[in-house]
Computed example of a mutant assay.
Amino acid sequence: MLTKVLIIILAVIVLLVLWGVSVYNSMVGLRNRVKNGWSQIDVLLKQRADLIPNLVETVKGYAGHESGTLTAVTQARAGAVQAAAASAASNDGSRAVAMRAQAENKLSGALVNLLATAEAYPDLKANQNFLDLQGQLSDLEQKIAYARQFYNDVTQKYNTRIQQVPSNIIAALFHFRESQYFEAEPAAREVPKVDFSK
C-alpha cells in the first residue's frame, strides 16, 4: 500500500515537473518571438532612416525654400537614430520600446508633412528619382505597419501567457517580464492638416 502511494506521489511530481518545463519552454518561445518581432521592426526602421536623406535631398532640389519642413524631417530622423541607439543600449526593454516608438512616430509625422509639401511642386512629383524614393518609402511604411502588428500580436500572446493562472507562477519564478506594445502617440492618431495656401 505504501509503495502504491509513493508511486502515485512520484507520478504527480513528474507530471508537475513536465508541466512546468512545458510552460517555461512555451514562455521562452513567446519571449523570443517578441524579440524577433522587435528586431524585424528595427531592421525596417533602419532602412527607412537610410532612405530619408536621399528623399530630403531630392525634395531640397525642387523645394529648397521649404527649409522648415526639411529641417523637421532631418531632426526627426536624427532623433529616431538616437532613440535606436539608446534602445539598443537600454536594459529596460519596455522603456526602450516606448522611447523608440515616440521617436519613430515623430519621424512618421515629419515624413507625412514632407510628402504633403512635395504635392505643391508638380516638377518634383514628376521626377523619377523622387517617385522611386516615394515608392520605396511607401513600401517600407507598409512593411513597418505589418511588423508592428506582428510585434503587438505576439506581445499580446506573451503578456497573456505571463498573466494567466497557473503559468503566472512559472513566470514569477523565472522573472518573465511583460513586454511593451508599440503604440502610436495620441498626437499621431490625429489626421494631419495640410495647407497648400502658403
Rank of each mutant, 00 (worst) to 15 (best):
H65G: 07
H65K: 09
H65D: 12
E66C: 06
S67T: 14
S67V: 14
G68I: 09
T69Y: 09
T69R: 06
T71Q: 15
A72G: 06
V73N: 06
T74A: 13
T74R: 08
T74K: 10
T74D: 10
T74N: 08
Q75N: 15
Q75S: 15
Q75G: 13
Q75A: 14
A76D: 01
A76V: 04
A76W: 03
A80Y: 09
V81W: 09
V81I: 15
V81R: 09
Q82V: 10
A83M: 07
A83R: 05
A85H: 11
A85V: 05
A85D: 14
A86H: 12
S87H: 09
A88E: 14
A89Q: 12
A89P: 04
S90F: 08
N91Y: 00
N91S: 12
N91F: 00
G93S: 14
G93I: 02
G93M: 06
G93P: 00
S94H: 07
S94Y: 00
R95N: 11
R95F: 05
R95K: 15
A96G: 06
A96F: 03
A98D: 13
A98F: 05
A98Y: 04
M99R: 10
M99Y: 00
R100W: 06
A101P: 01
A101H: 03
Q102N: 12
Q102F: 07
A103M: 03
E104M: 02
N105G: 15
N105R: 04
K106M: 08
L107A: 07
L111M: 11
L114E: 02
L115Y: 10
A116W: 08
A118S: 11
E119K: 14
E119C: 06
A120Q: 15
Y121W: 04
Y121I: 07
D123K: 09
D123E: 11
L124N: 05
K125V: 02
A126T: 01
A126G: 00
N127R: 03
Q128C: 00
N129P: 05
N129Y: 04
F130C: 01
L131G: 00
D132A: 11
D132H: 11
D132C: 02
Q134V: 01
Q136Y: 00
Q136P: 00
L137F: 08
S138G: 15
D139T: 12
D139S: 13
D139A: 13
D139L: 06
L140T: 00
E141M: 04
Q142W: 00
K143C: 08
K143M: 12
I144N: 01
A145W: 01
A145F: 01
A145N: 10
A145D: 09
Y146P: 03
Y146R: 13
Y146L: 13
A147V: 06
R148C: 02
Q149R: 14
Q149E: 14
Q149L: 10
Q149M: 10
F150P: 02
F150M: 10
Y151H: 08
N152L: 02
D153R: 02
V154P: 03
V154Y: 10
Y158M: 08
Y158G: 06
Y158F: 15
N159T: 04
N159R: 03
T160E: 13
T160H: 14
R161G: 09
R161S: 11
R161W: 07
R161Y: 13
I162C: 04
Q163C: 07
Q164M: 13
V165I: 13
V165M: 12
S167V: 09
N168W: 04
N168I: 06
I169W: 11
I170N: 10
I170S: 09
I170V: 15
A171F: 08
H175E: 12
H175W: 03
F176W: 02
F176M: 05
R177N: 14
E178T: 13
